[in-house]
């Protein structure tokens, strides 16, 4: 079975929010739209987004890591949000594992959002139905798009290509390789939800310098006999 997913590389994500708004613009006019905004030009502007980028600080000054952390629906393999839905509006697609909401069936009871530990479902305050990341189902399945563009909007936009997309069940896919080789991990594994989306940890590149590196015969200083005689007195003048 195919399980499409995103793998987010925290090693390169700079927290630019491109994935946030590219998602919004694609989806608001798409299958899962509209994504409504409330008070768009007033106090407390708020609205529906499928993807958010957050910032965490780890450690304390000066040993601080700043972690930018994008998060959208993780398309869990065992999605707790699905069975609890009383209407069947929430479902997981058989063909590709994408978890979706059918707005025509949704009654806006919010129960599924309670059953998601990740806080990625959002009830659209005007439309009163539950919305969430669709993995851009209407892009990735659109056969009329060129292959290279049959990807989620956020993946295409991401300036650092921190968002990898593919089938995590295919061991040879880019995402599976990344998870395998780069220590990809799942969020809140304690719940057994088996998120399909994974995260890649930070990696540090260091440089190792040895004493030898600093002591070399080809040191250009050796080419400059640095002393210049200006006629000062020396031992030559006083000893014999």
């Amino acid at each position: 079975m195919t399980q499409l997913a995103l793998v987010i590389d925290l090693n390169v994500c700079v927290g630019c929010h491109a994935c946030v708004t590219s998602c919004k613009q694609w989806n608001t006019s798409g299958w899962a739209g509209p994504m409504v905004d409330e008070n768009p030009y007033d106090a407390d502007p708020t609205g529906t987004f499928f993807n958010r980028v957050q910032t965490f600080e780890v450690g304390s000054y000066p040993n601080t890591e700043t972690v930018h952390f994008p998060k959208s629906c993780l398309h869990c393999e065992d999605p707790p949000c699905v069975p609890v839905c009383p209407t069947g509006a929430s479902y997981k697609r058989e063909d590709n594992g994408v978890v979706l909401v059918d707005y025509d069936k949704c009654i806006g009871c919010k129960y599924c959002s309670w059953a998601c530990p990740y806080g990625v479902r959002e009830l659209d305050a005007q439309q009163k139905v539950m919305k969430k990341c669709t993995l851009c189902i209407d892009r990735i399945t659109d056969q009329s798009l060129p292959e290279a563009e049959r990807k989620p909007a956020c993946v295409l936009a991401c300036p650092t290509s921190a968002r990898l997309y593919g089938d995590v069940h295919d061991p040879d896919s880019e995402v599976s390789i990344a998870i395998r080789e780069r220590g990809g991990y799942a969020l809140m594994p304690e719940w057994g939800t088996q998120p399909a989306n994974h995260y890649l940890p930070r990696q540090k590149n260091r440089m190792h310098i040895t004493e030898d590196d600093l002591q070399r015969v080809d040191n250009p200083l050796k080419k400059e006999d640095l002393t210049v005689y200006h006629g000062e007195e020396t031992l030559e003048d006083v000893t014999w």
Partner: peptide, 17 residues
């Protein structure tokens, strides 16, 4: 994607045009 500068990528602002 055919543009030499951004080669298909777009930032948060550009995506909010």
């Amino acid at each position: 994607p055919d543009h030499p500068l951004n080669q298909g990528i777009l930032c948060a602002k550009g995506s909010s045009g």
